[in-house]
Design a protein around this nucleic acid. Sequence first.
DNA 1: ATGCCTCCCCGAGGGAGA
Length: 259
Amino acid sequence: MKIATFNINGIKARAEALPRWLDEAQPDVVLLQEIKSVDENFPREMFEERGYNVETHGQKSFNGVAILSKLPLEDVSRGLPGDDEDEQARWIEATVIGKQALRICGLYLPNGNPVPGPKYDYKLAWMERLYHRARELMASEEAALMAGDYNIIPQAEDAARPDAWREDALFRPESRAAFRKVLNLGFTEAFRARTQGPGHYSFWDYQAGAWNKNDGIRIDHFLLTPQAADLMRDCQIDSAVRGHEKPSDHVPVWVDLDL
DNA sequence: ATGCCTCCCCGAGGGAGA
């Protein structure tokens, strides 16, 4: 089963590029971030006609996450627990049934800039809530994953120019420590479990020819519980998608699970 | 590089992204 995450930077703006990639890559499940659409305006027919079930957690103008799945989705839940006042649509989860059940969580972690400030406080508070949900998933001892745009550069090797990011919310020590705290519950970071070394990115800025210079960062991640990691056959970044017509600034990352 | 593009809102130009 091929499961992908893709920050599309607006569903309307990706009305051509997203179906093109779906037809090429043929993922079974896709976690989308930054749909920038309310549920009522999400073009679900575009995906249903390709055989996907569609679940959205949208918001006007900003944020918004969704799940596409060729297999049935059960027990869909919207919103990251822990703050009833939080109105930002950044979390959706569901159970997909293959040979066995898999709990999938799609997330769009706050950017957090500028540092310091209320947006950075919100990022760190959101990561504390993520830690609590992650701990529950780990305690369940079930196959589960959390994937999406983490807005975290885990290590210096995950940026072409790490020094340019030292003071940025994506690479601040507090941000990276909060990410490690989740990882250290026992999750496998899928890409790094299979590929080492620099030069692997999932985001390139639209500005200053970042793509042509491979001036990227790796901020879209899959975290697998041990039971899910046991099933992993592959994990890749579809970096070529960044060179297609009218691309998102992120590219898809996917795992293949024996499921 | 506290912003070189691109997205959203709408129908100008500002907020947000990373």
